[in-house]
Amino acid sequence: MSTMPVSRQIRYFKESRENWKERALEKQEQLRFFSQKIDDLTRSRDKTMDLTSDLIKQALETVRCRDLSEWINEIFGQSMLSKRKAVFDRSFDDMKVA
């Protein structure tokens, strides 16, 4: 038995569940982002490189997300959409509700 009051346990479990949902959504968003980047790369490189689904699958199985992210940032830099998102996110953080 826990020595924590029941109300505190409930609050702890609710926060834990919400944190799990948030992390899962972040992972889904990251996977969607990489999938879109790979699709973009495939379309843009079709004329110069023969990217097969097997080659892409092999690359996804052997390359870490962190390494792929660093490579994308190094090669392509920050996209206009991510620049806009960063600016607007900061502007909403500056707003305070009375």
Rank of each mutant, 00 (worst) to 15 (best):
Ser82Ile: 07
Ala98Arg: 15
Phe88Asn: 06
Arg32Gln: 13
Thr48Pro: 05
Met4Ile: 15
Glu61His: 03
Leu25Lys: 04
Leu60Arg: 10
Met95Thr: 06
Ile75Gln: 03
Ala24Ile: 00
Phe33Asn: 09
Gln78Ile: 15
Asp50Ile: 11
Lys57Ser: 05
Glu70Gln: 08
Ile38Cys: 06
Phe34Leu: 05
Gly77Leu: 02
Lys27Gln: 05
Ser7Trp: 09
Ser2Pro: 04
Met4Tyr: 13
Asp40Glu: 14
Ala59Lys: 02
Thr42Cys: 04
Arg90Asn: 10
Lys83Trp: 04
Arg32Pro: 00
Trp20Met: 12
Arg84Ala: 08
Val63Lys: 11
Leu25Gly: 02
Thr52Ala: 13
Ser79Phe: 07
Arg11Val: 12
Arg84Lys: 13
Lys47Phe: 11
Lys85Met: 03
Ile38Arg: 06
Glu29Asn: 13
Ser16Pro: 00
Lys37Ala: 13
Gln78Met: 14
Met49Arg: 12
Met49Glu: 12
Met4Phe: 13
Gln78Tyr: 00
Glu61Leu: 02
Thr62Met: 13
Val97Pro: 01
Asp93Ser: 08
Lys14Trp: 06
Arg84Asn: 11
Val63Thr: 14
Val87Ser: 06
Phe76Asp: 04
Cys65Lys: 09
Ser69Cys: 05
Asn19Arg: 07
Arg64Ser: 09
Phe88Arg: 09
Arg45Glu: 13
Ser53Tyr: 11
Gln36Ser: 04
Asp89Tyr: 08
Ala59Pro: 01
Phe88Tyr: 06
Phe92Ile: 12
Met1His: 07
Phe33Pro: 00
Gln36Asn: 05
Val63Ser: 09
Leu60Ala: 08
Thr42Gln: 06
Val97Tyr: 01
Arg11Pro: 00
Ser82Asp: 15
Asp89Phe: 07
Ile38Gln: 02
Ile72Arg: 01
Ile56Ser: 02
Tyr12Lys: 11
Asp46Pro: 00
Ser79Gly: 09
Met80His: 08
Glu26Pro: 03
Arg90Ile: 06
Trp20Cys: 13
Val87Ile: 09
Arg17Val: 11
Ser53Ala: 14
Ser16Arg: 14
Trp20Arg: 13
Met80Arg: 14
Val63Ala: 14
Lys37Gln: 12
Asp67Ala: 09
Arg11Ile: 12
Ser16Ala: 14
Lys21Asn: 10
Lys21Ile: 07
Lys57Cys: 02
Phe13Val: 08
Arg32Ser: 10
Ile56Pro: 04
Asp89Leu: 14
Asn73Thr: 09
Asp46Gln: 09
Arg23Asp: 00
Phe76Cys: 05
Val97Cys: 00
Asp50Glu: 15
Ile75Val: 06
Gln28His: 09
Arg17Tyr: 15
Ser35Arg: 15
Pro5Glu: 06
Ser7Pro: 05
Lys85Tyr: 01
Ala59Trp: 01
Glu18Cys: 05
Asp50Phe: 13
Phe76His: 05
Val87Thr: 08
Asp67Asn: 07
Leu55Asp: 07
Trp20Tyr: 14
Ala59Asn: 02
Leu51Lys: 03
Arg23Ile: 00
Ile56Phe: 02
Asp40Trp: 11
Asp46Glu: 06
Asp94Lys: 10
Phe76Trp: 01
Phe33Trp: 13
Lys47Leu: 10
Ala24Met: 10
Glu70Trp: 06
Asp67Gln: 06
Met1Lys: 10
Arg43Ser: 12
Met49Ile: 09
Ala98Tyr: 15
